[in-house]
């Protein structure tokens, strides 16, 4: 799946490679340095990160979340954060999009560890309303507008890069996770620290259930394209309404 296709619909865009931005992390993936894209979607000015940094790549949590610090200083006050996730909830199917209502991150390092920088936020940020209720309502309306059966649930963060064992999947299910993935939560924690409102969307690209079956490469690609298209429609409709 290529969420990057979303960039195609950004108008009047200016692109900046991460490697050209002072102090930005450098991607560990050769040929995929990532870029910032600034432009307009549905008449709204947006700053888009095409490509993100993962803890499993070897970055520190502070490096993973550094772009959010920069977003904060640039005056970004709302963030739409997206990911590909494994569906655990029995009602989830491949190609579903899930609104992240909350997350679980229990055992891994936090990006806020160390001396606090008060210019960004408080020492002990409140995590009770990390995902903004108003933005959730707007995206529900947007999904309704485009006849999308959008799902909702709790995102469980695993640092990766290894996938989950069946026993871990059972634990995640018991703890209340509806989908699992290896990103998003570090950035969201820093958003909470900096007062940036967050809308989280997970694209379910595989399911982790008893009835999961192997699928062909063609089916996977087809699912990916379907998700990318419906995801773009949803974001455009959301931006129209916000």
């Amino acid at each position: 799946m290529d969420f990057g296709k979303f960039i195609d619909i950004v108008e009047d865009k200016v692109e900046i490679e991460y490697k050209d931005i002072p102090n930005f992390p450098v991607s560990t993936v050769e040929g995929h340095s990532g870029k910032l894209v600034v432009g307009r979607v549905a008449g709204k000015e947006v700053l888009v990160m095409s490509g993100r940094f993962h803890y499993y790549e070897g970055y520190s949590m502070q490096e993973v979340t550094f772009p959010i610090r920069v977003f904060s200083l640039l005056g970004i006050d709302k963030l739409i954060v997206t990911n590909a996730a494994g569906g655990i909830h029995p009602d989830f199917e491949v190609t579903d999009i899930m609104i992240i209502k909350d997350h679980i991150k229990i055992f891994d390092e936090t990006p806020l560890r160390g001396k606090n920088t008060p210019e960004f936020g408080t020492r002990f940020p409140d995590m009770r309303n990390v995902y903004d209720l108003e933005m959730m309502n707007i995206v529900r309306e947007a999904a309704n507008e485009i006849n999308m059966d959008i799902k909702e649930g709790v995102y469980y963060y695993m640092a990766g890069p290894q996938y989950e064992t069946p026993a871990e999947v059972n634990v995640i299910k018991l703890l209340g996770g509806d989908a699992v993935g290896m990103s998003t939560v570090p950035e969201v924690i820093v958003c909470s620290h900096s007062g940036i409102k967050v809308l989280g969307l997970s694209c379910i690209t595989n399911t982790l259930r008893d009835d999961t079956v192997d699928v062909t490469h063609e089916e996977v690609m087809e699912s990916g394209d379907l998700i990318a298209n419906s995801f773009s429609k949803l974001i455009v409709e959301f931006l129209r309404k916000i």
Partner: peptide, 11 residues
């Protein structure tokens, strides 16, 4: 521009 909305595209 002076964007107020950020988007992180997963991959």
């Amino acid at each position: 521009m002076n964007p107020k909305i950020g988007i992180i595209l997963g991959s």
